[in-house]
Design a protein around this nucleic acid. Structure first.
Lengths: 249, 249
DNA sequence: ACCTGAACACCGTTCAAGT
DNA sequence: ACCTGAACACCGTTCAAGT
């Protein structure tokens, strides 16, 4: 029909009848991928489907994205933009830490497969950094010394991610039952007496209650396990190593 | 050449020049799959490759195995057979708990991709149950009450699995550097002052030291966070719930 | 009952060819 | 420089056909 404007290339009606086809860009690709992930899960976020959603072929994406792994990293950080790190000034650090972690969990649970992706991706984008920065701030407020806080961030982050991944895993399944604990109700008292005896407790508890309990455990443990004893400024010279290293890394 | 004996069907020299081709069986399939997983990682354990290793076509496996997901579950439990749950009588519960977890970790690290598999699989086979039974026993020795121990098992198990999965993830990568922390060395002091200040601490520490510290955190936290206060036999009627539920499950 | 070849509906990635 | 069709080397799963 009209002449082509090179600055707005190929204004074509989209397949889904949307207004206009966006020109390809890294951002558009990541946005489409996150949309697919949210609607169809991790398996649904293939390069071919992302390309199809953008009305192009899979080969076109390689201009903007190294490979699938890089796309996943970008998608994860884009999703983490939804994590609330602001934090109301009103509450104490404990409330705000819980709120921060619940926000993180909510974001991971909103897109099925995102938590799985978070478990298998390095995730050092700006939004992951913002999350870590906020965690460090709250631990500082809590009175945790810096070396301890540094490791604690890792522990908390890993646990929260793992919880989300585990819950995401059993969402498509049947019941609101436990994680690796479902066969447990019918376990033999002879072979596994303790599991049998504790089977009701093993299966009890809503996810959020367990999460809140676990966070309490982590915080209480962190507050009572400084990497250096309170008055111990210099690293000990005798080096009373905790345990023998399992292997060098 | 000779006549075929129906009880030992198809005695054919294996592709790899091994002695004889085993008749197909669930056990042989799982063994071949675990072998592939150990040697080639999670991607290498495809149904087609397992079939090829057994000198047959992929369709043949479906006689013994429901689908890939079931095969993964079986492979995981077979691998967990390597976890040492016996425990020497000599040491205290703390030593034995650490030894148990290190055995679990060692098994998960021996086969690259196994930890990932453990994160995405329910794993309620006999060997997973044996591991849980042992954990419950040690927590009981430690004086942890049963309701607390039940949730603690889940927390410890999830953390250990997640640690292994994270470490397995960066094994094919370059350096002995941190988990989501590598860009962190060059992070802007303006944008992320706390990360910048703590960057050395964030990157410090060998994997085993961090793991030992984390286990100490978990144990100390668990010992100090009973689900019910020590003298509190009945659940409280007023139900002072910890926090509002995020959503029903 | 067990096994299989062939097909189906997918993958990620590459590359020569087009604009 | 950006985009693409076609191909390559894979997937899991199904099914009719063989023994």
């Amino acid at each position: 029909m009209g002449s082509r404007n090179p600055f707005e290339p190929r204004q074509v009606t989209s397949r889904r009848g949307g207004p206009v086809k966006q020109p390809l860009s890294r951002d558009a690709i990541v946005a489409a991928a996150l949309d697919l992930l949210t609607r169809e899960g991790l398996e649904g976020m293939s390069l071919r489907k992302v390309a199809a959603a953008l009305d192009t072929g899979p080969a076109s994406l390689y201009v903007y994205v190294e490979d699938l792994q890089e796309l996943r990293t970008l998608v994860l950080d884009r999703a983490l933009a939804g994590v609330e790190t602001a934090g109301t000034r009103q509450h104490d650090w404990r409330h705000r830490l819980t709120a921060l972690l619940e926000s993180y969990l909510t974001v991971l649970e909103r897109s099925p497969g995102l938590a799985q992706l978070a478990m298998s991706t390095i995730a050092a984008g700006p939004n992951a950094l913002r999350f870590i920065e906020a965690l460090l701030g709250l631990l500082d407020e809590a009175g945790v010394d810096q070396p301890t806080a540094a490791w604690a961030v890792d522990l908390i982050n890993l646990y929260a991610t793992a919880i989300a991944a585990e819950q995401g895993q059993r969402e498509p399944l049947t019941n609101p039952l436990g994680p690796l604990l479902r066969v447990i109700g019918s376990v033999s008292a002879k072979e596994f007496p303790r599991i049998h005896a504790a089977r009701d407790e093993l299966l009890s508890g809503e996810g959020p209650d367990r999460f809140a309990w676990a966070i309490e455990v982590l915080l209480k443990g962190i507050l009572h396990t400084p990497r250096r004893a309170p008055g111990d400024d210099a690293p000990p010279t005798g080096s009373p190593t905790r345990r023998k290293s399992r292997r060098p890394r």
